[in-house]
Nucleic acid binder design. Structure first.
Length: 424
RNA sequence: GGAGAAAUGGCAGAGUGGUCGAUUGCGGCGGUCUUGAAAACCGUUGUCCGGGCGACUGGACCGGGGGUUCGAAUCCCUCUUUCUCCGCCA
């Protein structure tokens, strides 16, 4: 959520920036400003009547103490009408504030100056790439065939137990999952992240805090009986740790990470291109989250990007890093880098991480603030997060890229974690 | 799941209808003293929304929501959470 102050002070800047995200915000901004104006007028009026009521009450109190009951009764005359009027103003104020909030929530975050305009993934900018695309042998196949051949991941079994998109990992497949999670967490710890094991169901307030609710309700599994949501990413619980929190400037940046399963309904987005591990309803992911000082949040973003990149280098996967264009960025992001790995059998780039700076957009919803040493005022923090990393597509690429006629070779860095160096 | 008790500022803990945004202690911050530190002493110390260039000033907030009243931290209703006892249980 953008702050009302920004919109009030620089409405044309807001409109200009949002054009990068292909949005004409003119009407919404205008509407917000009108409601803001109205809101402030109403509050001024409501407050002044309330002030009068308060002072009358104090006077009546004083009279009662002195035993001047008649005077007190006289003072009570006319209070009813004032209360009525005040109530009406307060109700209208509440309504106008709610409407302003509704409008405000419709506006996406402003993209950073470096973000290119564009309408689709074709306009994204490749900022860096690394690794070598492997030459596969003649009989090489896609991962959905490999997992059957070696009996390591079982989609049919998942369908029987739960439904499509909930695979069962078996034997070395399960062990590979555990190895990757441990590898990612250990690397994260070395990079200064504190490990968190959060709840994987969250309440409505948390869903709102990180921006999943109210709009993206349909993308989360909902436990109706308790009104809780299964998390789509660890970002939700880990960032919400800082909801309604005022940090000291010295505490920044805060670096947290967590491994969780992630649940996504992905309603209506299935097709041939999402075969196998490419898209799932449940998957594992290690997420890194930073809460940063606004002056240093882009340093934090670069630091996170470097960390994610180092993971891909160590896994010896060919990758590229793209900076998303305005049209391809999420609603809440000010700048996003996507990491893609080359899937040799599918001959496609697969997105394995999305690392973003949300600036104050999420913090404004969360009310996550900090105080400069000695300062009286609080300032909104900047929040950032990134996958480091999401497992399924990493697994897909590892299986496909490292396949040989004799089995699938495990990258050396993972062998201490898996305890085996080949799946055969 | 059953029965009972409770929820107050960073923490502890007063306050049961009238200047209570809230006594006090601890902690924090500033100062005096000291070569420095501690101790002692003095002062200060919540958040949000308005108005004003500013000094300053109005309003709201005592778990959440609603109600009674001229006036609510205090009374009533409701929800949530915590604690104690019983039951069940990885």
């Amino acid at each position: 959520m953008l702050t009302i102050n920004l919109i009030r002070e620089q409405p044309s800047f807001v409109i200009e920036r949002l054009k990068i995200k292909n949005l004409d915000a003119t009407e919404t901004v205008k509407h917000v400003l009108e409601l803001d104006q109205r809101r402030r007028e109403l509050q001024a009026e409501s407050d002044s009547i309330q002030a009068e009521l308060n002072s009358l009450s104090r006077e009546i109190g004083a009279m009662m103490k002195q035993g001047k009951k008649d005077e007190a009764d006289a003072a009570r005359q006319g209070i009813g009408a004032m209360k009525e009027k005040q109530k009406q103003l307060a109700d209208t104020l509440e309504e106008v504030t709610a409407r302003m909030q509704e409008e405000l929530v419709k506006l996406p975050n402003l993209p950073h100056q470096l973000v290119a305009p564009g309408t689709s993934a074709d306009d994204n900018v490749v900022v860096r790439s690394g690794g070598v695309k492997p030459e596969l042998y003649a009989g090489a196949v896609a991962h959905w065939d490999l997992i059957k051949r070696y009996d390591i991941i079982d989609f049919e079994l998942g369908i029987k137990i739960t439904g499509a998109g909930f695979p069962v990992y078996k034997g070395k497949g399960a062990r590979l999952q555990r190895a990757l999670v441990n590898f990612f967490l250990n690397e994260g710890e070395k990079a200064g992240y504190r490990e968190i094991e959060p709840p994987i169901v969250v309440n409505e307030d948390s869903g709102f805090g990180t921006g999943q609710l109210p709009d993206k309700e349909g993308q989360m599994y909902h436990v109706g009986i308790d009104n809780l949501y299964l998390i789509p990413t660890a970002e939700v619980p880990i960032t919400n740790i800082y909801r309604d929190v005022i940090l000291d400037a010295d505490d920044l940046p805060v670096r947290n990470m967590g491994y969780t399963p992630c649940f996504r309904r992905e309603a209506g987005s299935w097709g041939a291109h999402v075969r196998g591990l490419n898209r799932l309803h449940q998957f594992d992911k290690v997420e890194i989250v930073q809460i940063a000082h606004p002056d240093r949040s882009y340093e934090a973003l670069e630091e996170m990007v470097a960390h994610v990149e180092s993971l891909l280098v160590k896994l010896e996967l060919p990758y590229r890093i793209v900076r998303l264009c305005g049209g391809d960025m999420s609603f809440t992001s000010a700048m996003t880098y996507d990491f893609e790995v080359w899937s040799a059998a599918q001959q496609r780039w697969l997105e394995v991480s999305s690392t973003s700076n949300f600036e104050a957009f999420q913090a404004n919803r969360l009310k996550c603030r900090f105080r400069e040493k000695g300062a009286r005022q609080t300032t909104l923090c900047h929040t950032l997060n990134g996958s480091a990393l999401a497992l399924p597509r990493i697994v897909a690429a590892l299986l496909e890229n490292n396949q040989t006629p004799d089995g699938i070779m495990i990258p050396p860095v993972l062998v201490p974690y898996t305890g085996f160096d080949v799946i055969s």
